[in-house]
């Protein structure tokens, strides 16, 4: 298998870091060399954040550049649009339909892009959407949307040997016991959506 590059993009505070760690550790459990690159510090404060996960036989650079991502997991629509140039020609974009206004939109200095999903689809990008926030609400845990998005990813990395079982084991290892049940429910729900 050629190495796989997965980008996780969203807004600081949405749980992209944890999602990256879970996918990275699941890939490690499946026997791959893995690199995960994160952003900490100032950019985390409600800014646009990106986590890179790469796995394969041997990984050199921990970052993913334009045109290199096999899969982008977007936690927010505008971030999906912002980072879409990072997708490979035949790459897959999985995006939550959530929309969060950035400060320039809040202050009226800019407008939130319209019809993002339609425009992205029109370029021929393979795209799957999910209502991650809705799933999180349905399971009664507002913070479970990152695990819902991993659920939406599950079917696309199964062929790499990163099975649903490995993913749920990793989620179990990385989440506190008291939030586990709702998160696993979100994981399941996103797969059967």
């Amino acid at each position: 298998m050629n190495s796989k590059s997965i980008m996780i993009v969203g807004v600081g505070g949405q749980g992209t870091l944890l999602a990256g760690r879970i996918i990275g550790n699941a890939a490690l459990a499946a026997g791959y060399d893995v690199k995960v690159s994160e952003v900490h510090g100032m950019s985390q404060r409600g800014g646009s954040v990106v986590t890179y996960v790469k796995y394969g036989e041997s990984i050199s650079s921990p970052v993913i550049c334009r045109g290199e991502a096999d899969i982008i997991l977007a936690f927010e629509q505008m971030e999906a649009l912002r980072w879409s140039p990072y997708l490979k020609n035949d790459g897959l974009l999985i995006t939550s339909n959530q929309m969060i206004n950035p400060m320039p939109v809040i202050t009226g200095a800019a407008h939130y892009n319209e019809n993002i999903i339609e425009k992205l689809t029109a370029t021929g990008i393979r795209i799957e959407t999910l209502d991650a926030a809705g799933i999180a609400q349905a399971v009664g845990n507002d913070k479970a949307s990152n695990i819902a998005i991993i659920g939406a990813l599950a079917g696309h990395i199964e062929n790499d040997g990163i099975t649903r079982e490995i993913l749920t084991d990793t989620i179990t290892a990385y989440l506190p016991q008291k939030h586990l049940k709702t998160n696993l429910e979100a994981f399941e729900m996103a797969q059967c959506r």
């Binding site: 404060r45 140039p85 950035p102 400060m103």
Partner: peptide
Amino acid sequence: KYEFKGVNEPVPPRPPVLC
């Protein structure tokens, strides 16, 4: 050279903010 094939419209920046 990277060849851009995507939605060609500006995306407003999302700078960090006070919580």
